[in-house]
Simulated assay, not measured.
Amino acid sequence: MKKAAIATAITTLVSGSAFAAEVYNSDGNSLSIGGRAEFRGDFQGTSGGDKIDGTMQNNSRVRINVGGETQISNGFSGIAFYEAEQKVKSSGSNDKNDNFEQRYMWAGLSSDAGAVTFGRQDAATVQISQMTDTVTSHSGIQKTFIQAGDEQINNAIAYSGYFMDALSVKASFLLAEEENENGWALSGIYTLPMGLGLGLGYAANDNPGANAQDSTQVIGGVNYRLDGLYVGVGYTQGDGSKKFAGDNKFNSVEAVAQYRFESNFEAVLGYQKGEIDPDGLDKYSVSDYVEFTGVYYFNSTLRTYATYKLNNLKADSSQRTEDAENSLRLALRYDF
């Protein structure tokens, strides 16, 4: 296992782009810069299912990341990564957004045995949820149920290793600043030579307060890749979702199928349904939709896509005051 491969895999995972450009390399020190600029316009309904009173809600964003590596000795190096995101203000006013949101900020050590990183980063189970988090617009709810299984968590220590050219292992520890909020997570994905991947993960963290149960989560995923075809299915369940203040159970299923044609057009079909079952209250849905996406790649860095989301959330089954709206998203994305 090569330390450079580990560092590259981590950077690609958190940035969502494999096109970071090396801008400096001297005396064992290297620096890379990457990111994306993405126009995203929503019509009819927002991604959350609310009605758009006007013509379009603008959800455009830009991400910028910087990654560094310094060689300490043969097979041993220091690594660091930072990424920030700025979104356009989606309100009816023409106000500009002056704020950048911090997404990742970590530093660590990398060797042939793996990488250990410290800072704001993904929990170990996020690699399982990302087996289905490929839909262009709205996927990814499985990684947001509990704190210790979420992406971009503060006070995290993480280990990442890749073995036998097939097994990806991750472990993370949440060292919370507040009392009784520590957590941990562990996951692994084994990919068979035929292209079939099998993933399993577990996360747990304490919850403070007399009316809050401790959180636990089991998550599993299966994916398959063959030429232009990719299929992924994920399922998670557990106790103590942060989406509900009291004691509760939760579950979610997510599936995606996509095929990229030789014409550089990609068709994507996604499905997701997530439920919360509060103690003493009726079960309700937090997500329930089918999504159709068409993507055209002009080249390796520029793409355009259109997504239509059929939102099945009803007023009587999702703690909403009215049925959720369907949504059409048109977008243009440039990776650098």
Rank of each mutant, 00 (worst) to 15 (best):
S90H: 07
G92S: 07
N94G: 13
N94E: 12
K96M: 13
D98H: 04
F100S: 06
R103Q: 13
Y104Q: 12
Y104W: 10
Y104D: 13
M105P: 04
W106L: 05
W106T: 00
A107R: 00
A107N: 05
S110M: 03
A115N: 06
A115L: 12
A115Y: 06
V116A: 06
T117R: 03
F118Y: 15
G119N: 03
Q121Y: 02
A123W: 05
A124Y: 04
A124H: 06
V126S: 09
Q127F: 09
I128D: 13
I128F: 11
S129A: 15
S129K: 10
S129H: 08
Q130S: 14
Q130D: 15
M131H: 07
T132R: 03
D133Q: 00
D133Y: 02
T136Q: 13
S137N: 11
G140D: 10
I141E: 10
T144K: 10
F145C: 05
F145T: 06
F145N: 12
I146M: 07
A148V: 10
D150G: 09
D150Q: 11
E151Y: 11
E151G: 14
E151M: 08
Q152E: 07
Q152Y: 08
I153S: 08
I153Q: 14
N154W: 07
N154F: 09
N155R: 05
A158R: 15
Y159H: 08
F163D: 09
F163N: 09
M164L: 15
D165E: 12
D165Q: 11
A166H: 03
A166G: 03
L167N: 00
V169D: 01
K170E: 04
A171E: 11
A171K: 05
S172R: 09
F173H: 14
L174V: 02
L175K: 12
L175A: 15
L175Q: 12
A176H: 07
A176F: 10
E178N: 13
N180D: 15
N180H: 06
E181R: 15
E181Y: 07
E181Q: 15
G183E: 12
W184Q: 06
W184I: 02
A185S: 15
S187G: 10
S187F: 13
G188D: 03
I189Y: 08
I189L: 10
I189M: 08
Y190E: 05
M194V: 03
L196E: 00
L196Y: 02
G199T: 04
